[in-house]
Amino acid sequence: MSELVEGYGGLLAEIKQRVRSAQYEALKAVNKELIALYWDIGKLIVTRLEVERWGKAVVRNLAQDLQNEFPGMSGFSAANLWRMRLFYETYVNHEKLAPMVREIGWTHNLVILEKCKDDLEREFYLRMTRKFGWTKNVLIHQIENQSYEKTLLNQTNFSETIPEEIQEQAKLAVKDEYTFNFLELGEEHSERQLEQAILSRIDPFLREMGGMFAFVGSQYRLEVGDQEFFIDILLFHRRLKCLVAVDLKIGKFIPEYVGKMQFYLAILDDLVRMEGENPSIGIILCKSKDKTIVEYALKDATKPIGVATYRMFSSLPQELKDQLPAPEQVAKLLEGLE
């Protein structure tokens, strides 16, 4: 019958989308109520234990009585009640983070609460989870791969080459190191093998790149005069609204790579960039780099370029954690995650 009624397919598709949208909004509302409930329980436990000086046995008894009263409702174990207490204590005096915790799931909150060391790191993962809709497993993967540190330590010249209104967002779009543990490559491989491996696993590659990239093409052809040039991988960043050229290198970074990338970006901006898009960005992805050499190589570059490394496993040296920006700089940078 549906085939005989003109426009039925469109009507069905519209209603399906409306139902899904309503389901999503309902889930968000339920989640906010659940987080608010756990917040209030945590607050009550803190008050009774500290003000009334009740012992720990009270929480154990409370858990048992709540489970008996609400047998079909999970979450009232003694361990979870203690987590509610910690949850409340962690965020009660933090005006910026307290509203954010209501916008992600309880299990996500627990991961961030238990695995992150300070408020700035928690803010980073709260914002990223909310912005990209990370699942619990993706969130754990990002924390274990030290996305926070790798994002803050990135090397770019964006402060000098990108419009001020999108500088912070652009800095957050490039990591210092990418972990491609989804690639089945040996320690020794060619640039072509690296590219082919990435193309065969394009979805996890784009997720590792940050979640806001769309794939445009590989070996993207540029024609200048009577010569052809090819960009290894061309992406588009949806939030920054700009093309992103990725140059793959299997060895150590050398300064000459910057000149080549500037050449690619000049052509992209003149011949490929569409009206309304921001200037193109380049990412030089190497096996290793000397941070001082990168700093000098980017110093006088006029096109926006970032230099990063890639690994098949997470390997951020412990000593680099001491090189993170000052807290006030980190706080300013995180504003770009809105």
Rank of each mutant, 00 (worst) to 15 (best):
L113N: 06
D65Q: 07
M100H: 09
L234F: 02
S74C: 12
V5N: 10
Q219D: 05
F229R: 08
Q329A: 11
R18F: 12
F253I: 00
Q169C: 06
V58F: 13
P255I: 03
K260H: 14
P304S: 08
F236G: 06
Q64N: 10
D322F: 15
D300M: 06
K260V: 13
L152N: 01
R201V: 06
L120V: 05
L49M: 09
M209C: 09
Q169D: 07
L222T: 05
E228I: 12
P255N: 08
C286R: 00
F230E: 11
G282E: 00
V101M: 02
D203V: 14
K303L: 13
R207S: 14
A22P: 15
E328P: 05
M261S: 09
Y91P: 10
Y38A: 08
L199H: 03
E14L: 14
M100F: 06
E188I: 00
L27V: 15
L243S: 10
A301P: 11
K303R: 09
E14I: 03
L271G: 04
F236N: 03
G10L: 07
Y257G: 11
V244Y: 04
L320Y: 14
T161R: 03
K171D: 12
V92Q: 15
K289R: 14
F124A: 13
R60I: 14
G72F: 07
S218D: 04
R201C: 13
I143C: 13
T292Y: 13
E164W: 01
H108D: 15
A98C: 11
L243M: 12
S280N: 02
L34A: 09
Q219W: 02
M73Y: 04
K303I: 13
F229I: 06
M84R: 08
R239W: 01
E160H: 02
I284P: 03
E328Q: 13
A22D: 11
L153I: 05
S315R: 07
M274P: 04
G217D: 01
G10F: 01
D176H: 04
L268P: 15
V46K: 06
I35T: 04
E228S: 14
H237C: 04
L337I: 03
R85E: 10
G306W: 00
K252D: 09
R127C: 14
Q196F: 08
D247P: 07
A301W: 01
L333H: 09
L153Q: 02
G210S: 00
L66W: 03
I166G: 11
R192S: 06
V174D: 01
E144S: 07
E50G: 04
K117E: 12
N109K: 05
E149C: 09
R273H: 11
E208S: 05
A63I: 02
S147C: 11
K289V: 05
S315Q: 05
Y8Q: 06
R273I: 10
I267P: 12
L153P: 03
R201Y: 08
G259I: 03
A301I: 01
M1C: 13
R273S: 15
K241T: 02
T302F: 14
E277T: 12
K332F: 05
K252F: 09
